[in-house]
Design a protein around this nucleic acid. Sequence first.
DNA 1: GCGTTGACCCTCC
DNA 2: AGGAGGGCCAACG
Length: 114
Amino acid sequence: MPKPETLNFFNRVYEVTKRIPYGRVTSYGAIARYLGAARSSRMVGYALNGSVNRDDVPAHRVLNRNGLLTGKHHFSGTNLMQQLLESEGHEVKEDKLQNFEDKFWDPVTELGFS
DNA sequence: GCGTTGACCCTCC
DNA sequence: AGGAGGGCCAACG
């Protein structure tokens, strides 16, 4: 995360989201904690709403704490988010990612504190 | 500048 | 164990 001061909340969310490795997923709360705004998890989703138009931000790799595809409704197609996840080797059933904890990627743990 | 809104999360019945 | 409700905080109108 370069220059946190000059980057607003949205851009910081983008930076973290872009660093999610292929085949891994994370949660809104994890990103929020990494940004130091543990109570602003809703804003993470709000920010991703603007980033979904950006093709450089893999917003489909961000789920809620239960591994549920809560934001699938904001994608172009209803099942686009699920198909993107399935194309990365994930297993989605009933809008919920299977084996979520195993594929979970915590930026605080993986990237460490900024 | 105030009131509403939300791709969430935690706590309490 | 499961559901309902409140809290948070930044962006939007």
